[in-house]
Design a protein around this nucleic acid. Structure first.
Lengths: 237, 237
DNA sequence: CGCGTTCTTGACTGCTTTCAAAGATGGTGG
DNA sequence: CCACCATCTTTGAAAGCAGTCAAGAACGCG
């Protein structure tokens, strides 16, 4: 029916969170316990619905997902990507409602994110993860508002590269990218036809390859120059 | 040099926050004390710079501002609007850095937002304000990604109408809108020329008037139908 | 009243979409 | 192991929305 998750590759949510803030033994323990109960969602299925009460946040253990909004005439906009190892739906208010729906792009497995105790490392890591998420939203806005199709794709791939590197060390210029051109179009505010043509242009220019569910960055330097890319930083060292 | 703030109209940050969560007497007191020390920023001047450490969050007391990102070739994207009465830059992590710069669109006055005590009504109000902010970001993404110029303007004006109504009761179909067409273009991912032509179309179609720094919504019903507008809700009643 | 900023307008270009259909690809069942 | 089917990718031609460039009109402030 649809492509499966990419080759099972080690995602380490604990490593990502531990990078964002130091975690103590109890917290690491809670994280690994939480991963005991896994939930699976098949590709194209909803993870949660817009407007529904949010009872907990999740850790995405494997597979790709997204937040999306669908217009009544069928237009779809993917608002943000949710990559393996990342958090979904951290909220600090009481009785929150989901601001957007979330959908699995590939088969996905997730678990509840352990509740942080105030002032702990985990709470800090969640806060920084939330700040990163916000950073990615701003970047998505700049991408959609002021970049050409060519630039949008380049910029997105650099962002994904960086985000994936946070959970899977060793990932450099080759990494899984299990989105169809149509999903990519919905994310970048384009049509799938134009995405297809633009990918050909990027390929022709020797910047990158994208096929069979994974990307190969061929010329990182020219790519970063193209979009003035800087790595995301949300807190002081 | 540039248009001033709109006619001084009563903005009530305390009213907005109190709507988001019940505040006790101490908190209301802290809010009104905070407004004692006001800072002013002239139109077009920076409120804070991207990447700088954030020492406090602010309450925008009057005037309009925005978060924006500027490309090296001069392209500018306004990422989000900051309207009078709203909060700027709530962060929960320690030692955060500003994810974007903020600039005054009109002359602006602001004050430090009082620090909330954990679990208090103020903390909850801040959290909900943050959730609303996120909601607006998602909406901005959907706007830029999948709406025509005509729809983008309609959708934005409905959002601003709703946001302004939260701080200035009585605001209905007439409200200040002190943005130049060029700023509007930078917010909506268009050119000022096209914004101009699209505004004429909206005027011609009897949907709204926008001139002299304020908007007059003429046909709210058709406008909301046009963009499937629903009011923002981020928590259960 | 004069100047700078903002708003309008026109003609032309072009990036992106639309519509349609033909190729690839991958999984499934016979 | 291969045929079959659904999904995804690729291509072509034509149309359209939005951008560019340039210049004149209107507006607001000092």
């Amino acid at each position: 029916m649809s492509r499966q998750s990419p080759a099972p590759f080690e995602t380490r949510p604990a490593a990502r969170l531990g990078q964002l803030a130091p975690l103590d033994a109890d917290e690491l323990q809670a994280l690994s316990e939480a991963q005991g109960k896994r939930y699976r969602v098949a590709a194209h299925h909803e993870i949660f619905e817009e407007g529904r009460p949010v009872d907990s946040s999740f850790l995405l253990l494997s597979g790709w997902a997204c937040r999306s909004r669908i217009f009544s005439d069928g237009r779809r906009q993917i608002l943000s990507l949710l990559l393996p190892g990342e958090l979904i739906g951290i909220c600090r208010q009481t009785r929150p409602l989901a601001a957007t729906g979330a959908v699995a792009l590939t088969d996905v497995s997730l678990c509840h994110a352990p509740a942080p105790c105030d002032k702990g490392g985990l709470a800090e890591a969640y806060a920084r993860s939330g700040a990163l998420e916000e950073f990615y939203l701003f970047r998505q806005i700049a991408r959609l508002g002021r970049m050409s199709a060519y630039e949008r794709i380049a910029d997105l791939l650099l962002e994904v590269r960086e985000r994936i590197a946070m959970v899977a060390l060793g990932v450099e210029d080759n990494f899984p990218f299990p989105m169809t051109q149509e999903a990519l179009a919905d994310l970048l505010g384009l049509t799938s036809v134009h995405v297809n043509r633009t990918l050909q242009a990027l390929r022709r220019d020797g910047l990158l390859e994208l096929r069979g569910g994974s990307v190969h960055i061929l010329d990182l330097r020219r790519l970063t120059d193209l979009v003035e890319h800087r790595d995301a930083i949300v807190c002081e060292a």
